[in-house]
Design a protein around this nucleic acid. Structure first.
Lengths: 205, 205
DNA sequence: TAATATAGTGCACGTCCGTGCAGCAAGTCA
DNA sequence: TGACTTGCTGCACGGACGTGCACTATATTA
């Protein structure tokens, strides 16, 4: 559907938008690729638009918005690592062509409002892939559903555990056979601080 | 220095850029704020520029780039979850007081330049806390040190593994006893794509 | 061999959009 | 009371920029 040149042009639009904060004009694209006629460029823009890689806001200057085939703006001059595809099968190519979106934590974890992060201590959740030193991203809320990973305050100790409500009590289950479930009875000081929505970890160094 | 109206206008430019993928024109700002003359708007733009909140690319349509006083493009307001402390001991209080910094992926993983992200398929790294569906953040480089987690291309298959150079060959070790190490001999098609620097995961939903 | 797709050139037209200049009303300061 | 600042209006100018139409050259396909 799309040839190399179309992909290069899409990559240029994305790069330009990321670097400048606004998309290029048709003529600026033309200069970049040595296309002297605006229609030479328009030919590709139509192509990209039909293929769903570009949204055009007709008649408006710089009205070129690169989108992911899904529809999200993919050039937001915001933070993001280029998301190149899937690993362990297939061949990710390290170029703009295989650009698959952006790993923006806002997209991944959601709106930072009402959320906070905590650094994890201890190994009670290793089987859930939450290790010592990891950061958990938490949505602040007072209630949770069964099976969710929550951050809770039990007798003034904050802890990360699976949430399992029982008849008349609550069980907080670790993801590590080393640890017994904590049973919270009605008399105890217990409060849910939030539900874990994400995990971030640095590797090495 | 800046009055309320100037701040509102800056906010509008940022919002507009985020939603549309390109900044507004002077006239579009005017319409939004009921300012019929382009010079009414320009008055504020000059103000914002002098205060360092806006970069203007003169004479160019939509040449408005909101920046932080530091200089970084800020049409996406800098991302960050408040980092409230450590969980599993101590008592994190959900207020500004216990604010311990910000969980900004730029700080955590480093400069996005030269880095990319990949979605993980398969369970070969579960003991390293890398699960199916996680995103790995990768620094692009051709060499790696022993023991690092790398993304490599082996016979056209991309894979995430521990890197262990041996005499005359390379061993790629999974973090899952289910999988045998892959031994790369000199004749094989092998290339390091980068070194894993971080992991991100969403939980639930 | 004719039809069609690809990949453009070249130009005119009209609108979009930033700029410059002139002016004005309300408030404030001296 | 007169100068100055703030926060605009109004307009004309010119260049930036998207669009439409006509035309061309080279492959590819039927």
């Amino acid at each position: 559907m799309l040839n190399d040149r179309a992909h290069e042009i899409l990559g240029f639009i994305r790069r330009f938008a990321r670097e400048h904060g606004f998309p290029p004009t048709i003529r600026e694209i033309g200069v970049e690729f040595g296309i002297s006629s605006t229609n030479g460029v328009r030919f590709y823009l139509k192509m990209l638009e039909k293929a769903g890689y570009l949204k055009r806001c007709g008649k408006i200057s710089r009205g070129l918005v690169p989108v992911t085939p899904g529809g999200a703006v993919s050039s937001a001059p915001s933070f993001g690592y280029p998301l190149l595809g899937t690993v362990a099968a297939g061949q990710p190519i390290l170029a703009e062509e295989s650009f698959d979106g952006s790993l923006d934590p806002r997209d991944v974890f959601g709106d930072p409002r009402g959320m906070f992060a905590l650094r994890v201590r201890g190994d009670s959740m290793i089987e859930a892939g939450i290790f010592e030193g990891d950061y958990v991203v938490v949505r602040q809320q007072e209630a949770a559903s069964a099976g969710e990973i929550i951050v809770a305050l039990v007798e003034d100790d904050a802890t990360v555990k699976y949430f399992h409500p029982r008849r008349g009590s609550i069980e907080l289950v670790a993801a590590n056979p080393k640890y017994q479930p904590i049973v919270v009875s009605s008399g105890m000081n217990f409060r849910i601080l939030g539900v874990v929505r994400g995990v971030m970890r640095t590797v090495g160094r």
